[in-house]
Design a protein around this nucleic acid. Sequence first.
DNA 1: CGGATCGTTCGGTATGGTCGAACATGGCGG
DNA 2: CCGCCATGTTCGACCATACCGAACGATCCG
Lengths: 257, 257
Amino acid sequence: MIQSVRRATAILLELGSGQRRLGVTELADRLGLAKATVYGLLRALEADEMVQRDVESGKYRLGPVLLQLGNAFLEGHELRARSMLWADSLADRTEQAVRVGISMGSSILIVHHVFRPDTSVQILEVGATIPWHACALGKVMAAFRDDAELEQKLAGPLPRLTGRTLVDRRELERALERIRRDGVAIEDQEAIIGEAEIAAAVVDHAGHAVGAVGVVGPVERLLVDGFARPDLAGAVKQVARGLSRDMAGARVYERGR
Amino acid sequence: MIQSVRRATAILLELGSGQRRLGVTELADRLGLAKATVYGLLRALEADEMVQRDVESGKYRLGPVLLQLGNAFLEGHELRARSMLWADSLADRTEQAVRVGISMGSSILIVHHVFRPDTSVQILEVGATIPWHACALGKVMAAFRDDAELEQKLAGPLPRLTGRTLVDRRELERALERIRRDGVAIEDQEAIIGEAEIAAAVVDHAGHAVGAVGVVGPVERLLVDGFARPDLAGAVKQVARGLSRDMAGARVYERGR
DNA sequence: CGGATCGTTCGGTATGGTCGAACATGGCGG
DNA sequence: CCGCCATGTTCGACCATACCGAACGATCCG
């Protein structure tokens, strides 16, 4: 495994976590590398605008090419492309915000986001990551994973985001069991106080979870007595099924030349 | 300059341009490298989810980490952070869509985008890149560059996007001259037929252009007889000045720890 | 069934990435 | 204003390791 490349991405990830800019020495310390090594890697990354140096502090931050590449990732993403229409209609029917996410390491990455159809100001969450155990998208994907992968996830750290976050392994396993039975996952203020989510998994032709779709919003709009509003759960499941059918169909990419 | 790292980013850029997925051999050909070399680089990139392999075609595409990093870039971007309020108010006052961009190589990268305040469906352009000579954002930034950088830009290829794109060097220089005089740049269907833009540069304390802000929309709303509507040009210039003042002020980042 | 194409593995080679130490630079406090 | 500390940068040497060519295996297509 090419060492320098992995170290370069480690630098990028380090710069990406936390919005503070980092200097050569600080990066070298965090990654356990020699200063000169990090310096060389940064020079190479800087040449392609993968990182930029702040002119007056001399410290490094992520570069604009990453935004371009992130956007290119989205444009080529099959689940996202297919989910756009479904998500719009789901937001319309339920009058809630809709999120589509995929699994990335131990987190869920939001790849599509439709605002609640009212005039309230909402921030776009595309590109954001959420610990898998603290969102309905993550739990429903975990519930439909093979045991090996699930075990790996359960073994990892489970940070507590709010007082309601499930951080106990046993408790989580029980929740996953219920999710498998219901076909939908709920999240009740486990990531942000006052916010809830109802999500269902999108599976490919082989039955593997490739993503998840769900509605998010204020608890009082989504849950009653800690249970998902049946109409919303039904709509979410229906959309997830439709999307899954789409994903199993003919490839959209691989066209042209 | 660390070879493998630069080659790795070359792979990412190659995968990012064009939405087609690429195989090992194809990438090796395009980059002029040995198959085994590209394979090794891809393995390293794949380990960190910088790229992903399509299970059934075996070809590679960009990975989800790039979306996360692109998002992290945005969150740490000073111009973007400072422009959000200004852009909102500009969109409100002019009733047009607003874009904020920065210079990246020979392109403009959109870092912020506010939709026109009506109910029409519009697509978010954050992360998109546009050749510098085909948008007002790019031209106004070029107009306020030192000669060396400008020369480099003028020397590069100038693709023709529409029949109105300025691709002649002399013509472009004349346009830049006028932009310097007016303080605003206009773009009249030079990127997309029917679309126009009016933009002004954002400069830092030293007077260097760090970005640009502008309004975009249908030609008939922005221009009259090929000239910028004076009220719009004034509003854009005013916002650019305000933003420049902001950027010259105290740093927002570097706080904490 | 045969050919072609592509992904993958392997081992030798010398390139070039890594590191420690020395050198510049700038910022801060005394 | 000066000296000190921390940080960025350069240098040279070592040898790990990235690179390549060639061979192997898998897969697709006719």
